[in-house]
Computed example of a mutant assay.
Amino acid sequence: MPRLASSVIPMATNGSSVRALHTPALSTLPRDMISLADYTPEQIAALVESAADFKDKTKNHGQAFHPDEPLKGKTIGLLFSKRSTRTRVASETSIAYLGGHAMFLGKDDIQLGVNESLRDSAIVISSMVDGLFARVGAHSEITGLAKYSSAPIVNALCDENHPTQILADLLTIWEVFGKRKPEAKTVFDVVRGLNVAWVGDANNIVYEMLSAFPKCGINMNVCTPSKYPIPESVQQMAKSDADKAQSNVSYFTDPVQAVQNADIIVTDTWVSMGQETEKAQRLQDFAGYQVTQQLVDAGKPNKDWIFMHCLPRKPEEVSDEIFYSDRSVVFQEAENRKWTILAAFSALFSKRA
């Protein structure tokens, strides 16, 4: 089996001087994190830098817990309507790191909008906790929670957005490509001009990428089957951000064309939770979309390209040859979920009285 890419890579080579550059932006964050569409590039960079700082202090300097315990005496509610390995482990360990108490509320513990309206649930739960990390179904559920909650909300996933995952992706990209740009001074110096090729479904992961990457100067080639287009509203938002940042967003149905000159190739599940009845049809519709060495050879990405996937992974989406290769940073990316969730919790939950 090919050697795995290391899950522990030194943070981008520029150290604390990079992290300090955007730190003041953390004080201007919106109360809630619904989508990175609501955040400025500087605020996104500040969260990535904060995550890198937490990772560096923990892994390189032995800081097992935050010395100031900013969540001491605070309870964070974890509302999970959908199961997750990385999100649950990352969130519970992050709260412990910050000195707080995690209260896990799974789909069998609480049913948002079923026996009690979502409005009533949000009002009641938020009156007893200091923050909510909610993994839900419909986008309307996360926006409804934010509307009626008296405590800050961080979106752990909904059908349109997944902000903490995309922050983890940005941290991973900064770590990998920062090592190749020793002259870089900022996060933007590292990521600006990189080419990301998305090959897969039109889902919440690519929507969130389009909410964040173009405004940070990252170019995107988005490849989905013709039956699964990116919504026009998402395309318009991405184009507006790309125009301001002088980046590019292009759309394809041919994966070979999409991966040409890519620095990063990304895919995700073709059958999300709740779409199981569509599996047979989707497997037909996504024929030719598996990321394989054959696709890479035909598409000719850039020399030092890497592969990313938010997990869990199914073999039809990417071959073992790619997934377990030196090109793959999927496990580094998975670990970085912890550090970016930790950064989000520290910024949004600890500053609240």
Rank of each mutant, 00 (worst) to 15 (best):
90 A>G: 10
262 A>E: 06
255 P>A: 09
155 N>I: 07
40 T>L: 01
216 C>V: 07
145 L>Y: 00
266 V>H: 15
43 Q>H: 11
21 L>C: 14
172 T>C: 02
248 N>M: 13
231 P>Y: 06
112 L>T: 01
352 R>W: 13
72 K>A: 09
165 Q>H: 13
201 D>M: 06
279 K>E: 09
181 K>T: 02
183 E>W: 02
115 N>L: 13
228 Y>L: 03
48 V>C: 02
121 S>E: 05
68 D>H: 05
286 F>C: 02
194 L>G: 05
160 E>R: 13
38 D>Y: 00
58 T>R: 11
186 T>M: 07
233 S>Q: 13
195 N>G: 00
270 W>I: 09
56 D>C: 14
277 T>G: 05
20 A>N: 15
47 L>R: 00
353 A>R: 15
179 K>Q: 15
170 L>R: 00
236 Q>H: 08
314 K>S: 10
157 L>V: 06
309 H>A: 03
250 S>N: 12
339 W>Y: 14
257 Q>C: 09
213 F>Y: 07
59 K>T: 15
98 L>R: 04
52 A>L: 12
286 F>K: 07
195 N>F: 05
8 V>Q: 15
140 S>E: 10
13 T>C: 10
177 F>K: 03
41 P>M: 00
237 M>C: 12
135 R>P: 07
250 S>V: 08
313 R>G: 10
52 A>G: 11
341 I>Y: 03
45 A>W: 04
16 S>Q: 15
109 D>K: 14
207 Y>V: 03
12 A>Y: 11
332 Q>D: 14
65 F>C: 14
278 E>S: 10
158 C>W: 00
341 I>D: 06
206 V>E: 04
283 L>A: 10
248 N>W: 01
283 L>H: 07
314 K>W: 05
136 V>W: 00
187 V>W: 03
287 A>H: 08
137 G>R: 09
265 I>Y: 04
278 E>M: 04
151 A>M: 13
134 A>P: 08
234 V>G: 08
269 T>I: 14
297 D>R: 13
77 G>K: 04
301 P>F: 02
5 A>R: 12
169 D>T: 08
202 A>R: 03
57 K>P: 10
193 G>R: 03
179 K>N: 14
231 P>S: 02
312 P>N: 08
57 K>Q: 08
199 V>K: 08
28 T>I: 07
136 V>M: 04
333 E>S: 05
305 W>T: 02
334 A>P: 02
238 A>W: 01
150 S>E: 13
174 W>A: 13
85 T>Y: 13
182 P>F: 14
326 D>M: 15
284 Q>C: 11
85 T>E: 00
10 P>F: 07
254 D>V: 03
192 R>T: 10
110 I>C: 02
6 S>M: 09
193 G>H: 08
288 G>K: 05
211 S>C: 14
314 K>H: 04
337 R>L: 06
